[in-house]
Design a binder for these strands. Sequence first.
DNA 1: TGCCATTAAATTGTTGACAATTTGGTGACA
DNA 2: TGTCACCAAATTGTCAACAATTTAATGGCA
Lengths: 228, 228
Amino acid sequence: MANTTALTEEDVCQRIRDSILEQRIAPGTKLTEESLCGIFGVSRTTIRRVFLLLSKDNIIRLERNKGATIAAPTVEEAHQVFEARRATEKALLRRAAERVQPGDIAHLRAHLEEEQTALNEADLAAWIRLSGEFHIKLAHIARNEPMCTFLQQLVFQSSLIISQYGTAGAPSSCKGGEHERLVDALEHQDAETAQTIMAEHLRGIESQLSFETEETGQDLHVIFAAAS
Amino acid sequence: MANTTALTEEDVCQRIRDSILEQRIAPGTKLTEESLCGIFGVSRTTIRRVFLLLSKDNIIRLERNKGATIAAPTVEEAHQVFEARRATEKALLRRAAERVQPGDIAHLRAHLEEEQTALNEADLAAWIRLSGEFHIKLAHIARNEPMCTFLQQLVFQSSLIISQYGTAGAPSSCKGGEHERLVDALEHQDAETAQTIMAEHLRGIESQLSFETEETGQDLHVIFAAAS
DNA sequence: TGCCATTAAATTGTTGACAATTTGGTGACA
DNA sequence: TGTCACCAAATTGTCAACAATTTAATGGCA
């Protein structure tokens, strides 16, 4: 009831992206057009455009005559996403170290404050989102739009992967002050150190996932083929 | 009249992508929905989906109530695309060198044959397309879907950039047997050499562009402002 | 002539109805 | 009871008419 103006297509995308970044929506969730029309108060046309756009980001999976579901990355896809992140963020950091400006550092430190606040207030959803957004903000310092957009896609997919394969016990994101150390290294334009921290950081996140256990949907073939 | 079955959405995308890769369509070209409906024999609904998908790849530019045009990258965007290619293809080559298999090399050599044939037959359009596709095939050897898809986008954008800023005299693509040398290096799993060749290769392509001269469309303002 | 408001044509955006497909359930029958 | 065919509901796909916007053209007016 807060907003009477109609939501635009990009608004809806953002809302869905946020819910993924905060891990409030599970991979594999079925999204029917009509229900989303009701929720966001937009027409089916808009929702269908949103589905198409998000499917390009591998956030939503579209199957003909079957509708849309929140993407549920396979183990293979998950590894490829993290491999891509290692390569991309490493390259971005080198350029970021060359191009970083004082204002960037201030901005990042303000972001770190927010992360800390969310952590103190035990606002887990906000903290998870901020952890992801940190990597995106870091990327922007490199001033390369195509690579930033690409990394953004990877971060959203990572969020889905963590939703799916994350061990419940340990919050599988950036602890140990690695974000802080990244900002420090960047402030000194130390690309090498930043890259090393980032590599460890991403390996750390990936290592906290458990890929051995159950899968979703299509892998039943493999499971039951072996059992019979 | 060759095909009576209706073209699907992906077919239309591919046709448009091909025409860009062969540089048969100029950046900035206006695409009206109705005309494309007639050309491809599909409904407006399909064309609109195609526009939306290709706009996500930065191949088509969508402006609200203004319709679609073939993207016309700015100089700044062009530099960023090539920077992204250098970073991405370098990373891809390292992984490709680790994972390359004999079949891959055979496949690449067959592709080189095609390139040579097109060159001998003076089929310029085909040769330009094949030159671009070489980089995409190379990327696939690294077995990383997200990065492959990303590179694909960059290659298409490169094609637009070359259309726009390429000097007419020299065909601003891969000569000097650099593609051959890349395959050789890859066959010996020599990532370092491959990366060096690729870096030179991309710099070479970029250096053949002329960013000083005229621009398209909106830059007329600047041009005539200076002249008056 | 040059400029500006008004109008007509062309193009894009949106909506709703209808068709096609999938999904879930019911009941007949072995 | 278990299986299969069939039917009904729900969901997605398509299309055509209509609304809104932009673009081009015309004609008045200084």
